[in-house]
Design a protein around this nucleic acid. Structure first.
Lengths: 207, 207
DNA sequence: AAATGGTTTAACTGGATGGTTAAAATGAGT
DNA sequence: ACTCATTTTAACCATCCAGTTAAACCATTT
């Protein structure tokens, strides 16, 4: 019956979920405070205004992803395996849909609410992919392709699939019975499949 | 010096741009009215409330895309060429970024503002891609893959690239000088490159 | 030129929302 | 137990915003 006062980190958890579901404009400070179990003024006292809160959310979520990517980069797997890992890291995690939704929306927004501080983190995700591709090319197993466009297709495809569940199910109801849209794939399998398709265009094939 | 009163279609043009730039929550009815050169009440009189306006915008933009896709489907090109066309249709058009931005945001939103009427149109874009793939498989040139995931990667990749210009340029400023992010690709080339990568994973290769 | 009916307008409303404040509660150090 | 800084709270405020209203406007008909 007691309510242990939530840590700042727990507040950020709630804020992350709210922003990922409603977007920056759609999220309400009062709503976040209530969901976190703190008074609205406490939220302002502890963390700050909406911009500061959003920045904190972005820094933490992108920071976590970049950390996982850097770790993965150090492992001794093949470049090809690392592409698969890259896709899985994007799409999985404690809170799968959230990263994708926030990323998609921020991009669609032209980064209107994106503070400078998170830009290096976004840039680093591209950088990691570039390093994987460069190493694959050095080993003579990858073609030269535009890493940034691969990044778009990989991130776009995985994030879209990770977040489109609600719409997908609504569309599925009115789609032909034999449509592929009815197949509910777990996120990691979807990420694998997308990565595999793209690897088909990257891998050097002798023919 | 005279101001010819804008047609409903011109109002929809403005509304489409506003919604694509700001999103549903970020767009202001007063802003749309002013930009279109009509009184706010006129906007309500002529079209209706925010939901009705948004629905009209969605129906028109998705309807146009689906129309173009259906036309393309009828042409006598190879399945492979049609995949390329598919990507180009998504990303090009009178108002390139708008479709992508609206689509990405709607998906990230879980379709909170998406009316039932546009679902068949969204479903049809997947359907068109499925038909292309089926025909390619019948001709023995395509592997069996999950069409829905191809759709994700293609739409996601192209839409992301089409809309991420502003962020990309900001990230580029703090990226290493040799990063692929600095290369400014025209949209149709980017769409081609992404389609080509994915085709690598679709095409049947003898090896 | 008066009546009619569709269209546009400025002004307004009610409720929500981001942000503030002053006072109360809490707790650590003495 | 007292002091003082930190934290929490309820109440408050100014602004914004979707949507409405009643009057004005204009074209056509009679």
């Amino acid at each position: 019956m007691t309510k242990p006062k939530p840590s700042n980190d727990e507040i950020l958890d709630i804020a992350t979920r709210t922003f990922s579901e409603k977007g920056y404009d759609g999220a309400r400070m009062a709503e976040i405070a209530k969901a976190a179990g703190v008074n609205k003024a406490t939220l302002y006292y502890r963390i700050g205004d909406k911009d500061i809160l959003f920045t904190a959310v972005l820094k933490r979520i992108f920071g976590t992803k970049v950390g996982q990517l850097e770790e993965m980069l150090k492992t001794p797997q093949s470049a090809e395996a690392k592409i698969h890992e890259f896709a899985k890291i994007l799409v999985l995690g404690e809170i799968p849909e959230q990263f994708g939704a926030i990323m998609l929306r921020e991009i669609a927004n032209g980064g209107r609410n994106l503070p400078d501080e998170v830009l290096p983190l976004m840039g680093r995700t591209v950088g990691v992919l570039e390093e994987i591709l460069a190493s694959g090319q050095k080993d003579g197993v990858f073609k030269p392709i535009n890493p940034f466009l691969l990044h778009m297709a990989l991130v776009g495809g995985c994030s879209l699939y990770a977040t489109n569940g609600p719409i997908r199910r609504r569309v599925a109801q009115m789609a032909p019975k034999d449509s592929a849209i009815h197949k509910e794939l777990p996120l990691n399998e979807a990420a694998n499949h997308i990565a595999e398709m793209l690897l088909g265009g990257i891998r050097i094939t002798r023919n």
